[in-house]
Design a protein around this nucleic acid. Structure first.
Lengths: 143, 143
DNA sequence: TTCTATACGCACCAAAAGGAGAGCGTGAAA
DNA sequence: TTTCACGCTCTCCTTTTGGTGCGTATAGAA
């Protein structure tokens, strides 16, 4: 995630090769659309970022999360955490003390999703320069 | 992607184990924020779906893409394709014929991004039931 | 001559996302 | 007695997103 695991280029290449060679298994279109929906839900900026900080440090209280997830508003934090809880990605534990104390923690499901996203973080970190260059070239181009 | 490659549970587990054990490499925060932005750009519903169909079939003309990416409007298709082109994920080739013919094709960069997202598709396909169950349980819970 | 196919750009509008800020309950500290 | 901490919720309000429909250029077919 923000910590980039040291997959070697060989490992990444192998994974890509693997994916490219695998014969397509076409899913039941009903399932495919459910998967698509789920991806839409889960491939969300704030979800990814929260997943990231919770993967690094867990459990975390609400206010601590608000500090660590840079730029998130209270509203979005609450909203996203609720959705993640509903999807079974985090647990929410309320301690009946005053002032209130609530702890958030990744479930096993959440951890595996974090691992799955890891590939995208790695890609982004590795290809940042390429993307920036592409953008520069594109913007330079005549209309 | 929509075709689910047959990673075994063991391979996925290995990848997760790998990611969990890797010591954190904290990035330059400036880079981290760029990566975050890039993720936000790229982890978009339509981008992922377009990436998906282009990974399966390429090159594709605009109107063919519009048919294959279910539910996308012309406007969103144009917009997303332009952004992807700018980011260096697809190439756009215009044939000066009439009626116009334009072909879109993934670049190498686009292909590797598709491979990176593959993990998320696999996760979604594998954990669809778990998520649905979690949602059911959550919705059943008393307020 | 009229019609069609193609890949858009543009203007308009409705809906949704998301930010800012106020309020709330309560026990302990000052 | 006032203040503060914490984790929210609720109410505005602005910004963004995204859909719809119309216009356009032009060679060839009918």
């Amino acid at each position: 995630m923000k910590r980039v695991p040291d997959f070697t280029k060989e490992q990444i290449a192998a994974a890509q090769y693997y994916a490219s060679l695998t014969p397509p298994i076409d899913l039941d279109p009903r399932i495919a659309s459910l998967v698509t929906d789920l991806i839409g839900r889960v491939a969300d900026k704030w979800t990814m970022l929260i997943l990231d900080v919770l993967a690094e440090k867990s459990p975390l209280r609400f206010s601590r999360l608000a500090e660590l997830v840079e730029g998130i508003s209270q509203k979005m934090l609450t909203q996203t955490l609720r959705a993640m809880e509903r999807d079974g990605l985090v647990t929410r534990t309320v301690y009946p003390v005053v002032p209130p104390k609530v702890e958030y923690k990744l479930t096993d499901l959440g951890i595996t999703l974090g691992a799955a996203f890891c590939g995208v973080w790695v890609w982004a970190a590795n290809n940042l320069d390429a993307v920036e260059k592409a953008r520069g070239d594109f913007d330079q181009r005549p209309a």
